[in-house]
Nucleic acid binder design. Structure first.
Lengths: 235, 235
DNA sequence: CCTTATCTTAAACACGTGTTTTAAACTGTT
DNA sequence: AACAGTTTAAAACACGTGTTTAAGATAAGG
């Protein structure tokens, strides 16, 4: 088998090694600094590799970046946990609270290793590159749609209802706010150091804040629409 | 009178003109592109002025920028309306709704003229420069503090209570989300074109979404604390 | 061993950026 | 009108960026 692989891809034994190291280094640097602030020399130094090799192996910086994203989307590390979460059988309200908590944690702890995909995503949201379409379609949208399904269940509305979508944006907005504007928040509120306990506290607040509307809105809506509300989808 | 002015400031008659034009052009370009993406040549072209004059009149690009901010903070155009709003005597709930509506409108209509200060602020939040401290202390914090006072009145809590602050962040987060991530939101929800009507619709949603928690939290809090709640501060 | 294709290296290139230089033009004063 | 101080203009500079070049190193096949 090793022979047949060697036949299929003749040359790559050594080249694959540097390709791999470049991808690895590039992931780290792009996740850390974002596309525009990352430099090819940064990446090559970290990979212990000559500057010309990015262009030799990938064509140019942007293709290296999209290659990193492609790999990141295929193995979306921390994002996988989020999808796993939705597979659980908890009550929707409990699930939403867990979701908010997990997203907040993953967004805040920037420095740790396994958040590559999340950090790349956050940079894309803040400063979109030509790859924004892929990121949204393949990473953000699935997340968003699952959140809408969940909210639809709580609200007793279709996932694509206007009100459902607005609630999704409210929750996403509150959460992402802490990821993008922590320097400013910290200046407005110096006591907030975002220790793990404070992260939980914030996550619980966002959940409480949001569930208040979600629950009352459902009751109001059910009361108006029919006398025996029943479950949506049980036709 | 023209003579006395000429005596007080001897030389500046011509120089002031280009200084002024530079500040004006720089305001527009910085507001449009943010500090790092704005180029001195962009600014000078727009001012019809030689590239060297920025360094002659202001020292360097950063000092020109802080000068723009200084002027922007002194005459914070659109931000003034927000402060005026707080001076009104409406019920807190009504005031909050108006506040959210106004902030959202000012943040969204980026292209129009009188939003200089707001646009500069938004760029600072997204990509802080060394001037972030000034911006937060002199523009964001006053706004934030007034919002906390307002929320404190609704919640029947002190403005610096943890819960009050969390609510402020929830509202700011929801609102700013539409300013910073409209390209992404538009891709997730293509029907949302942010026409004036849709802006109002979103603003009202954010108000409803937030007031639901604020009101229920107040009642719960009042019920727990004392039998005759009364007004806070009337000791 | 020699040839060939592949990979790597050091250096240079092209370009955009903020900044500085140098001399010319302008302005007000005597 | 002549001078000194100030302002402007054109060009060049310094530097960081992504990219390319041309030659050398490495491995594989005949």
């Amino acid at each position: 088998m090793a022979v047949s692989r060697a036949k299929l891809k003749r040359q790559p034994v050594a080249a694959d090694r540097t390709r791999f190291r470049l991808l690895q280094a590039a992931s780290a640097v792009f996740a850390d600094r974002g596309y525009d602030r990352a430099t090819v020399r940064d990446i090559c130094n970290r990979a212990n590799v000559n500057v010309a090799l990015i262009n030799y192996h990938f064509g140019d910086k942007l293709e290296l970046y999209t290659e990193v994203l492609r790999g990141s989307v295929k193995h979306p590390d921390s994002l996988q946990e989020v999808h796993d979460l939705f597979a659980q059988q908890d009550e929707p309200e409990v699930l939403l609270r867990k979701f908010i908590r997990l997203m907040l944690h993953r967004m805040i702890k920037r420095r740790e290793a396994p958040n590559l995909h999340m950090r790349l995503m956050l940079h894309e949201l803040a400063r979109p590159t030509p790859a924004i379409a892929r990121i949204v379609d393949e990473s953000v949208k699935p997340l968003h749609d699952q959140l809408c399904v969940l909210l639809g269940r709580i609200l007793d509305l279709p996932p694509n209802d206007q009100r459902t979508r607005l609630c999704a944006q409210s929750i996403i907005g509150q959460t992402i706010h802490y990821a993008h504007h922590m320097p400013v928040i910290g200046r407005l509120w110096p006591e907030l150091k975002m220790t793990p306990e404070q992260q939980d506290m914030v996550a619980n607040h966002i959940a409480d804040f949001s569930l208040s509307y979600l629950k009352s809105s459902r009751e109001e809506h059910r009361g108006m629409n029919s006398i025996r509300p029943g479950r949506r989808g049980a036709k």
